[in-house]
């Protein structure tokens, strides 16, 4: 776990300059650490993509709700009017 915490600190840019230099040096000589670092970076990217996907689903559900439930009828009419040509 220490390795994961260390890599997180390094990738987030929150590491102290001295520790960062040391980490840069370790990454040059430690292949395993370098691989973990790359994969941890990919993990963050993947989590962001997953989060965005879930949020998009949530927004789509809200949109469908607004455009289908009677409560928002006047809103829907107002919008539909804008696209009547």
């Amino acid at each position: 776990m220490n390795n994961t915490v260390l890599i997180e600190s390094y990738l987030s840019g929150k590491m102290e300059p001295g520790d960062r230099l040391l980490m840069d040096a370790r990454l040059l000589i430690d292949h395993g650490l370098r691989v973990n670092c790359e994969h941890q970076q990919q993990t963050y990217e993947l989590v962001k993509a997953y989060g965005r996907l879930c949020l998009k689903r949530e927004i789509t559900a809200v949109q469908e709700h607004i455009f289908s439930v009677g409560k928002h009828e006047s809103f829907r009419q107002k919008i539909n009017k804008l696209f009547k040509r």
């Binding site: 776990m1 994961t4 915490v5 691989v35 973990n36 994969h39 941890q40 990919q42 993990t43 993947l46």
Partner: peptide, 19 residues
């Protein structure tokens, strides 16, 4: 916090295997 790091390691490992 401990669970967060465990999960980071788990997904990192999945990525490693899949890479």
């Amino acid at each position: 916090t401990a669970q967060k790091y465990k999960c980071l390691e788990k997904i990192r490992e999945v990525i490693k295997q899949r890479s």
